[in-house]
Amino acid sequence: MRLGYARCSSLTQELQSQLDALTAHGVGRDKIFSEKISTRLKARPAFEKALATVRRSRPMPRTAASSSPCTR
C-alpha cells in the first residue's frame, strides 16, 4: 500500500507541490493525508490518521503457535 503525508508549518506555505509529488509517485489521493499545523504543536491529527490506516491494513504477525500445523 502506498500512503502519503504532506505537512506545512505555516499558513503562508502551500501543500500543493507536496501533494503533486506524492500523486506523481503513485499515491492515490484517497491515501494522502495532509495538514497545515505548527511545528510547535505535538499533536498531528492527519499523521495519526495515516498511522492508524497503516496499522489497520497490516496483517497480524504470525506467532509460533499460529504457524505450527494443527494436530487435532
Results as ranks from 00 to 15, higher is better:
Leu41Trp: 07
Thr71Ala: 11
Leu51Trp: 05
Lys42Met: 10
Pro59Leu: 02
Arg44His: 15
Leu3Arg: 05
Arg40Trp: 12
Ala24Asn: 07
Glu48Ser: 12
Ala21Thr: 07
Gln16Asn: 14
Arg62Lys: 08
Cys70Tyr: 06
Ser34Gly: 03
Ala6Thr: 05
Glu14His: 11
Lys31Ala: 14
Leu51Ser: 02
Arg2Glu: 11
Leu41Asn: 13
Thr39Met: 10
Met60Trp: 02
Lys36His: 03
Arg62Ile: 14
Arg29Tyr: 02
Leu11Phe: 03
Lys42Trp: 04
Gln16Phe: 01
Thr71Lys: 10
Ala6Tyr: 04
Phe47Lys: 09
Ser9Leu: 01
Lys36Phe: 02
Val27Ala: 05
Ser10Asn: 07
Ser67His: 06
Ser68Asp: 07
Ala52His: 06
Ala52Lys: 08
Ala24Asp: 09
Ser68Tyr: 06
Ser66Gln: 12
Arg55Gln: 12
Ala52Val: 02
Pro61Tyr: 04
Thr12Pro: 00
Cys70Arg: 12
Arg40Phe: 15
Thr71Glu: 07
Leu22Thr: 02
Ser57Asp: 14
Ser34Thr: 03
Ile32Glu: 09
Leu11Val: 09
Phe33Ser: 10
Ala43Thr: 14
Gly4Pro: 01
Glu14Gln: 14
Ile32Trp: 12
Leu3Tyr: 08
Thr71Phe: 05
Ser10Arg: 13
Ser57Arg: 14
Gly4Tyr: 10
Arg29Glu: 14
